[in-house]
Design a binder for these strands. Structure first.
Lengths: 348, 348
DNA sequence: CTGAAAGCGCTTACAG
DNA sequence: CTGAAAGCGCTTACAG
C-alpha cells in the first residue's frame, strides 16, 4: 500500500499513534515507548514532556500492534458449554476477576458441548493468538487440545476428562460429595436411605451414588439403600419418588442426583401427603437459585463455581507468566453441604 | 530487533506464517494471501498447491496481524454490570449467537455498575481496537461513550439512558408492561388492586407502577389501587403484603415490582392463611428461574434478555459493516405476561 | 496470472 | 540519555 489516508477510519475517526506523540513531544518513538514501558530510564524532563502529550492526546498504545510485536495478546479464551447454564456465569466471573487484574481480557465462547463447535472455537482462539485457554467441560478428545499446546497456548481444563501433559485440571469430587451426603444423613439417624439417580451412565450422578453407597456400607448392617433411576427432570424426580414409596420399606431420606429432581420429589411427597422433612428428608445437588426459594427450602450440596474459575485462572496465569512450568497439576474444589429446611432426623 | 529466533515462542512451540506457506508452495506471500481471501483470481493449479500446503501446516493467518493491517479486530466488547446477574447470560448469548456467525468474538466485561470500572474497561476495549461496543446498563454519562465514538467504534446501548448521536438503543418498555399487567388483572375481574413497589425512585419499578396505575384509571371508577413500598427483597415483599392486608379494604390482586418480592408476598399470604390464587392473586416481574419452581408457580412478566442481545447485536453489525450509517435508532423489545398458577378471577 | 515492496503501530537490539 | 532501523505477520496498490 502506498498511501490511503493513514490514520482515518471509515467514519472519519482518528487515533493517535506513538509517532504522533513522538512528533509533538519532539522525541523519537523509541523514547515514547520507553516512557510507556519504563524499560529504560528517560530523563525526567523528557519523560514529563512526553507524558503530557500522551495525556493531551489520550494516547493508548494499540494492543494489536503490541501483541503482534511481543507475541502475546493479553487475551484468554474461556470455552463453556453454554453461558446460559447457571453454573458458568459464576465460573466465568471467578476466572475474570483473577484475570482482569493481570491485564487479561477474556473471550467467552459457547460450545454447546458439540465437538465441531469446540474445534472451531478452539481454532479461532488460536488464530487470535490468545495467551491462555480455559476449557470447561469439553466434549472433544485430548487430541483437540494438543493443537492449542502446539501453538504454545497455556491450557487448563475444568471438569472431568484426561488432560495431556502440561495441562492443569481443576474439578470437583462428586464421589466424595456423595459420601458426605451419606454420612450427613446417617448422622441424623436415618437408616432407610434412597437415591434418585440419572438415567444411568451419567458420570457425575454415578460418582455421587458410588460415594453415597460406600458411606452407607461403611456404617455396617442395619442400613438400607434403595435406588430409583429417572429422567434428569422435575417429573423424573416425582415419578422416581412415587416408585420408591411403593416399595415395601419406605425410605426416610432421599438423596437426589440434582436439585431439579429433588424439587420433583418434593412435588410427589406433597401429593402423597407426606410432610417434608417430618416424614421424609430430601437432599438435592447443585444449589440452584430455586433451592432457596421453594418451600421447604431445599438442603443440597453447593459446588462453588466461582472458585472453580478463580483457581483455574490462577493456574493458567502461572503457566502464562512462566512462574510454573512443571508437570500437570490437579486441584479439587471443595463442595459444601447446605443444610436448609428439607432435612431432619427421622421420626422414631 | 535484529534476530531472536523468529518463530519460536517461550515453550518452543511454532506457528506457521504466510511466508512459510509461500516458501513451501513456491509462490509469493502475495499469492498465498490471495488464495486465502479470494480477492484476486489465482491460477487453479497454483491455488491447489497453496491450499495443500495450508492444510499440511494447519496454517491460520494471525488475526492480530490481519487486524493491525486492516484496522479491524473482528472483536466486540459487551459491557454488563455483572454476568452473574441472571439477566445477562441470556443477553450475552443472544448477542453472541448473532455475532459469531459474522466472525466476531466477544469480550464480556463486568462493570459492577461502577463508573470508574466502566471507564477503565471502555479504555481497554478501545486499546484493543474492538470494532463494536455493546453497552448494557451503564452508569457513566454519555460523555464517556463519546470516547468510543471518537475512536471510531460502533456503539449500541442496551437499557435506559440517553444515547449520543449515532448510538442505537434497545430497551424494554416498563411502563407498558405495567399497563399490561393492570389490564390483565382487570380482565380477570379484580377491582381492588395493589402494587408492591421498590423503595422509591427506582426507575423500572416507578415506570411499572405508572403504567399499572394508568391502566386502572382508564377503567374508570369502582377500581382501587393501594401501594406499599418495601425493600427489593423477599422479606420486603412479605412485610409489604402484611401491611396491605391490614388495610381496611383488602386487595384481591397484588402486582409486585419483581419476582423476589412476589415470592416474599407468597410467604406472607401463607402465613396469613390466605390461599393463592383462591383468596389472592399475585403477579411478579422478571420471570426468574424460581418463579416456575415455587408453589404455586408464579405468574409474572418475562422480559426476553436473549432478544435484547440479539437485536442489539444486529444493529451493531449494521453499523460496523456500514449497512446502516444513519441517525440513532431505537428498538423496544416486547415483554410477555406468563400466566401460571398464582392468578385467577377473584371470588365473587 | 504473479511478485516486490510499503506500511499497519508497536518494541528493542545496536549504536553513539 | 537518546535515536535509526529492523521486524512482528499480514494485505494491497503498483507494476509487469
Amino acid at each position: 500500500m502506498r498511501s490511503t489516508s493513514p490514520r482515518t477510519s471509515s467514519n472519519g475517526a482518528t487515533r493517535a499513534t506513538i509517532h504522533e506523540v513522538a512528533r509533538r513531544a519532539e522525541v523519537s518513538a523509541t523514547t515514547v515507548s520507553h516512557v510507556l514501558s519504563g524499560n529504560r530510564p528517560v530523563a525526567e524532563a523528557t519523560r514529563q514532556r512526553v507524558q503530557r502529550v500522551i495525556e493531551e492526546l489520550g494516547f493508548r498504545p494499540s494492543r494489536l500492534a503490541t501483541g503482534l510485536r511481543l507475541r502475546q495478546s493479553h487475551t484468554i479464551a474461556l470455552l463453556v458449554p453454554d453461558i446460559t447454564n447457571p453454573f458458568y456465569p459464576e465460573l466465568a466471573r471467578g476466572a475474570q476477576d483473577a484475570l482482569i487484574d493481570a491485564g487479561y481480557q477474556t473471550f467467552i465462547c459457547n460450545t454447546d458441548s458439540r465437538p465441531e463447535q469446540e474445534r472451531e472455537l478452539l481454532q479461532s482462539a488460536i488464530a487470535r493468538q490468545v495467551d491462555g485457554l480455559l476449557f470447561a467441560a469439553f466434549a472433544s478428545g485430548p487430541a483437540e487440545m494438543r493443537s492449542a499446546l502446539e501453538a504454545g497456548i497455556a491450557t487448563v481444563l475444568i471438569g472431568d476428562g484426561t488432560a495431556p501433559a502440561r495441562v492443569d485440571r481443576v474439578h470437583s469430587d462428586d464421589r466424595r460429595a456423595g459420601a458426605d451426603v451419606g454420612r450427613y444423613l446417617l448422622s441424623l439417624g436415618h437408616r432407610r436411605l434412597a437415591f434418585i439417580a440419572a438415567p444411568g451412565g451419567v458420570r457425575p450422578s454415578d460418582a455421587r451414588l458410588e460415594g453415597y453407597r460406600a458411606a452407607i456400607n461403611d456404617r455396617g448392617p442395619g442400613h438400607e439403600l434403595t435406588i430409583a433411576h429417572a429422567e434428569f427432570t422435575r417429573e423424573g424426580g416425582a415419578t422416581a419418588l412415587t416408585r420408591l414409596l411403593d416399595t415395601g420399606t419406605r425410605p426416610t431420606a432421599v438423596f437426589c442426583a440434582n436439585d431439579v429432581m429433588a424439587i420433583g420429589a418434593l412435588d410427589a411427597a406433597r401429593q402423597h401427603d407426606l410432610r417434608v422433612p417430618g416424614d421424609l428428608s430430601i437432599v438435592g445437588f447443585d444449589d440452584i437459585e430455586a433451592a432457596a426459594f421453594i418451600t421447604p427450602a431445599l438442603s443440597t450440596v453447593h459446588n462453588p463455581p466461582y472458585e472453580h474459575g478463580q483457581v483455574a485462572a490462577g493456574l493458567l496465569l502461572q503457566r502464562i507468566t512462566g512462574t510454573y512450568a512443571g508437570r500437570a497439576r490437579e486441584r479439587t474444589i471443595a463442595h459444601q453441604i447446605i443444610e436448609r429446611a428439607s432435612t431432619k432426623p427421622p421420626r422414631t
